[in-house]
Each structure stands twice: as structure tokens, then as C-alpha cells.
Design a protein around this nucleic acid. Sequence first.
DNA 1: CGCCGAATTGACACGGTTCAATTGAGGTGG
DNA 2: CCACCTCAATTGAACCGTGTCAATTCGGCG
Lengths: 260, 260
Amino acid sequence: VSAISFLTRKSADVSIARASAGTLVSRLSSLCKLSAEELDLLSNLTRSTRTHLARTEIWNTDEASRPRIMVSGWACRQRFLGDGRRQIINFILPGDAVGDWLQPDLHTDASTIALTEVITADAGALIAAAQGACGHEGLSRLLRLMASLETAFLHNHIVRLGRQTAYERMVHLMLEFHSRLHTPQMVATDKFAMPLTQETLADSLGLSMVHVNRTLMQMRRDGLVQIAFGIVKIIDMKLMRAVADWVPIKLDGKSAAAYR
Amino acid sequence: VSAISFLTRKSADVSIARASAGTLVSRLSSLCKLSAEELDLLSNLTRSTRTHLARTEIWNTDEASRPRIMVSGWACRQRFLGDGRRQIINFILPGDAVGDWLQPDLHTDASTIALTEVITADAGALIAAAQGACGHEGLSRLLRLMASLETAFLHNHIVRLGRQTAYERMVHLMLEFHSRLHTPQMVATDKFAMPLTQETLADSLGLSMVHVNRTLMQMRRDGLVQIAFGIVKIIDMKLMRAVADWVPIKLDGKSAAAYR
DNA sequence: CGCCGAATTGACACGGTTCAATTGAGGTGG
DNA sequence: CCACCTCAATTGAACCGTGTCAATTCGGCG
């Protein structure tokens, strides 16, 4: 009997768990070079934010005209089968687009919900600037990169679900989180917040909750990670990458700085 | 012992199996309304085609600058794990984009190979016209729809792999093929060509070849489909949709004509 | 006629699910 | 400040969907 429960506990280190508005700018600007004016526009996005409670829907097709971007928190897109089985299609982290506005004609039968308390910002100005004729080349490239990354994550997820064991899937998903949450602070400590329920992990990885628990226990016993209070600490990155067959995502031919 | 082998046989009904160049135009134009000039441009695409042998790579990142579009045949995007496990990420059918040019900054560690003999056409003119300032609004919308559909198929695949049983996955995938290959002829007969090996289906659905075989046998025994010589004939569409929890893909808020 | 890739089938093993019970942490009301 | 409630995590035991191994058959082709 472990004395520490694994994932979500209120006593979690909030300083690690909470992303600031500055995180949004630094994450997006790490994807491609932006002009000073463009950077300014990015940081102005956080002027009009909105807070969503956990477990609430943060986007639906009726709001397709209202593009938003994640500022902080965790969300996901999910679909239910008729008998109640749930599949999480992808996770939405700070800096990601909320909803389908990167591909505005898609209306998949899926809902987008907050997994934690979530802050989103209106991305209308971002889109307008990128599409405008006044030469915000960096921003339009940024949007393309965001869409490409989202697709790459879908590809990764398909390979995980199709051909990896429970153990490999779990390790691979954690490596993806690690790369997506990449910050200077995280590089130093190899810690990141993962405020997910084991049930949520199960519905993402196509496993049962019970087996997710057993898999996490085994990962800890094997010395890959420490997990407590919603914080993941990578212990043996090399082994994890070997176990999960990790391949860095490449953007533009070269490995993206933030996605090693 | 069945007297008829199930999938790929040379004696297959070639008239059903082979798509004509006209198919490309009719399929794409069914996605959204195009001007006469735009339709003309589409049919001119097939002037510069290229034939690829089965099992050969038909696109790679070195050719990112050469966008191509499927005219006939079947192809797929796939990834290998280090120990040889293969996962097929998506199938590429006539009318689909070959490679990543809809999202040009993505370089996933995947290869795109022909599953049958394949004919592709240069899509450079299509892109140029859609991006040009001379108002080919229909074409640029067409490209957006193509990208959205591709994403919707990825979402479907994730749900299949994550939360459906082998039987449900197989039925669901066949329904997707049915909808994607939708033609006037097919509506009448409910037949379509599926020139895939059971091993290919296995690597798509995350199953073993043996289990794919058993699943197909069961589907036939249950009276869902007839499968012979690479031709699938839908017997009980209603039951299939119920089994697979089929949800039509919607474009633009309303169910797309070709994707019911 | 004999070879080869694909399909088919049986027997058995195993990864992961299901069912059910227990523990732990945090929140709430008296 | 404690009894109680609830949700999440944890663990054991039995079960089963699917994988693995191996043998056989089928169809196409040289």
C-alpha cells in the first residue's frame, strides 16, 4: 500500500502546475521566429481571457466563429460510443488551438472539455493578422506549424493505440507531454505537472483504469519516473525513450527546438 | 474450408477496381461547388500523371515541394517501430492528397507507399490557383475541406483503435471505405473494391493477421458483407452501422453528400 | 507440375478486462 | 475537531479477447 496517491491531489505544487500568461508567448514564439510587432500581438491576446471550470465544455461547433487559444490548464477532445465507452482523441495544452478553427470546415462528432480549470483567450486577432495582407508572415507560419503539430500528435496517438503495449503507450504519452510542456524550468528539473486522473489516462490510451494503475506502478518500480501529487519527475529519460520507441517530431526538416 | 479466398485475387472485377480519371473530378467536385473554370483546372490535372508500382514509396519529405494527388489505386501512410511492428496511419484513396502538402511543415517519421498500382497527378496547379489572388474561392475551400476530412479520418481511426473491439473496428473501417469510395455506381450495387491484404488490414486496425481473418469470417457468417476477389458487397448496412456505432462525418455543419 | 504468397484453421498462451473489495485524501456539517 | 461522505487510487482473482505458433489449403504463375 503506497502512502502517496499518484495523480491528482490538491496539495500539488501549484507553482509548477500553473502556467502563466507569459508561458503562452514563449511557447508559441519558440515554434518560429516572429517580429517584435507579432510578439506584441501575441502577448495582447491574454487581455481578453475567459475561465472555464473543470469538466465543462469549452468549445462546440456553435462557437466555430469564436476561435480561442489555450492559455493555461488541460483540456481534451473526446468522443463517446453509444454504450458509454469514451475515447480521448487528443489533449489540448497551453498554446494549442481550442476547437477546429485551424481547420474550420471539420465538424467531427466530438466534444472539447476542460480537464482542469482552464483559461482561454480569444484568438481572433491572431487569425486576422495572419490572414491579413499586411505581411505578418511569421504569424501565418505559426498557425501552419500549430496545425502540423496537432496532426503529428494524432499520428503518434494512432501508433500508440495500434501497435504498442500498455506499458509502451504510457511511457510514450508521458514523453509527449514532456516535450509539449517543455520550458526552461522543466529542463532543469525534469518535472512537469500532469493533472490527470487515471481514468482520463485510461480513456486516452484505450485501457481500463485498473490496468493504467498497474502500469504506472510498474513504471515506478522500474525506476522510469516518480509520480506523486500530479507531478511527474522523469528519472531515466534514456530508458524511457528506448522503451517507447520515441521519435522526435520534426518541423521544417529539422527537429523543433521544443519537441526533442 | 471456403472455396473462395477473400481479398486479393487477380481475377477481381477490374471494372469496379479501377477508377478512371473522371472519378477524381467527380469526387472532388462533390465536396464543394466549383466554377466551370475551376472544374476545368481539375480535369487538367490528370494531364501530367505518374504511375507507381505496388509496394513502392510514392512520396517522401525530400519531395515536399512536389505536391501530388491520388488519381487511382490505394496507398497508405505507415510507421514502423524499432522491432518491426507496423502501423498504418491512414489510407490514401483517389482524390486524396499524397503526402503532407496540405500541412507542409509536418515531417512525421512515416513513409507513404502504394498498396496497389497507383496513379498520381501533379497538384501544383491546384495549389497555385487556390493560393493565387485571382479569386478561385472554390478551390481554396476545396483544399480546406480535404484537410478537414483527412483529420476527421484520423479521429475516427483513433476511436476505432482505442475503444472498439476487433469486430467493431473492421466493420467501421469498411463503412469508412464505403463512404469514401462513394460513387453513383456504388450506390446502386453496394459493392466496392478493397484491394487489401489481410495483413494490411491487420496493420491498420492494430490486430494480428490471424485475428483479422477470423473477424472477416465472422462478419460473413453474420450476414453483414460478402467479400471475395477483393470486392466487398454490403449486405446489411443498417446492422453494420449499428454494430460499428457509425456517425456520419459532417462538413460545414451539414452532412456532406459523399460522406453519409 | 511445383513453387510462392495469401488465406484459413486449431491449439495454446498471455495481456488486459472485469468484478469486487479496500485504502487514502480532502471536503462538509454538526 | 471529529464523524461521515465522496472520489480517486490500489489490489486480488477470475475471465476472455486477441496474439502466437504451426500446419494446411488455395490460387496464380513460371
